[in-house]
């Protein structure tokens, strides 16, 4: 194999590595990282209702479980309240996260909602925590 060919092959390899490698790195890092930064953590993204609301909007846990939620305010400043278990994150500024922790002491369906006005549909920005026996 001549030197010319070798340089050209190396260049093709570098280009392919960049074009395929960058997206692959991004998505595999996200997949590896899992839903939260910790294994026992649920990662919740808060967006305005116009842009999809809470994600996930339905969180299922077991009774008696220690629940740890990390909430990311993605588009504007949001809040997070789940008053049945005394959880209140206060204002979560855009692009930052806050953690709430509580023990799911009783079974049932409990609403959580945004506590800082975030859009015209702010009052509709809600989700449900389901505590199974």
């Amino acid at each position: 194999m001549s030197a010319v060919k070798r340089v050209e092959r190396l260049a093709v390899a570098i280009v392919l590595l960049i074009v395929a490698g960058v997206p692959a790195a991004v998505f595999s890092y996200q997949a590896m990282r899992g839903p939260g930064t910790r294994a026992d953590e649920v990662f919740v993204v808060a967006r305005t209702v116009e842009r999809g609301g809470f994600s996930p909007a339905r969180i299922v846990v077991k009774q008696g479980q220690r629940v740890r939620l990390r909430i990311l305010a993605e588009d504007v400043t949001h809040g997070f309240q789940l008053l049945h278990f005394g959880a209140d994150a206060g204002a979560i500024k855009t692009g930052t996260t806050k953690v709430v922790e509580f023990t799911a002491g009783k079974t049932g369906e409990f609403p959580f909602y945004c506590s800082v006005r975030c859009s015209a549909l702010h009052m509709a920005l809600m989700g449900t925590l389901i505590v199974e026996p």
């Binding site: 991004v26 996200q30 930064t37 990390r70 993605e74 692009g95």
Partner: peptide
């Protein structure tokens, strides 16, 4: 640290 706004650090 967080190029896609996905909460990475």
């Amino acid at each position: 640290s967080d190029p896609l706004g996905w909460g990475w650090d």
